[in-house]
């Protein structure tokens, strides 16, 4: 019951999805769409588990009061305020995502700047990492350095102002060698995912049951 039922559910769900792909007619044709909707609903409930975990961890910090526990208060308050504003937006405007909803105010003036600044901050760390990584120690490291420099110069005005070669070279690198390696890696990863999926469906890979 504890292992056999989940294994059967996994096999049957995956099997019907594969069958519906190869037999796009009734009763299988509609099955893929239906299972995807079910998947979205079940995944929605997992969000509750995730938020519950987060809140529990930080409530524990607030009750035990280690150093920096005040930040946990900020996290909980941020979460609660966001959810409450979402509910208010839904009740007053019919959707939390209505342009006049206070939820969208919070999104515009806190989530967008926080997200953008977090990623902008990475520019400094990437630049610092590139200083260490971009040392022309051998041929392949030099290739990494040269292609990165060409792509960077080819995408900024100073590059095209200094020579028309940079924009053309960066376009060629992005369209051919870069695309070729990316494609090779993607095909390999997709084939790996297919084999892993088969292992899961056939019950060889069972780590998700632990």
């Amino acid at each position: 019951m504890k292992r056999a039922v989940p294994l059967a559910i996994t096999f049957l769900t995956g099997f019907f999805l594969v069958v519906s792909f190869f037999i796009p007619h009734e009763p299988f044709g509609e099955l893929e769409q239906r299972l995807l909707i079910w998947f979205a609903i079940v995944s929605g409930f997992t969000m509750l588990l995730g938020v519950d975990n987060l809140v529990r961890a930080h409530v524990r910090r607030v009750t035990r009061r280690p150093a920096g526990w005040g930040h946990s208060v900020a996290l909980i308050v941020g979460l609660v305020v966001t959810v409450v504003l979402g509910v208010i937006g839904f009740v007053r405007y019919g959707s939390p995502f209505h342009i006049q909803s206070p939820f969208m105010f919070l999104y515009t003036y806190s989530i967008i700047p926080l997200q953008a600044t977090m990623f902008a901050l990475l520019a400094f760390f990437i630049a610092s990492a590139s200083y260490r990584a971009f040392r022309a120690r051998n041929t392949v490291a030099t290739l990494l350095l040269v292609s990165a420099v060409i792509v960077m110069l080819g995408r900024v005005p100073i590059g095209s102002a200094s020579s028309h070669v940079f924009p053309a070279a960066q376009e060629w690198i992005m369209n051919y060698p870069q695309l070729a390696a990316k494609r090779g890696i993607q095909i390999g990863a997709a084939l790996g995912a297919v084999s892993m999926s088969l292992r899961i469906l056939l019950g060889i890979e069972r780590s998700y049951l632990s």
Binding site: S43, G44, M47, L48, G50, V51, L54, H71, S72, A74, L75, I76, V77, G78, L79, V80, V81, T82, V83, G86, V87, F90, S95, P96, F97, F103, L106, Y107, S110, I111, L114, Q115, M118
Partner: peptide, 18 residues
Amino acid sequence: EHIYVGVSAGYWLIYVAF
């Protein structure tokens, strides 16, 4: 950083629910 985590979790909870 903590506000970001809290607000993002709340945002995605509302997003998924809605």
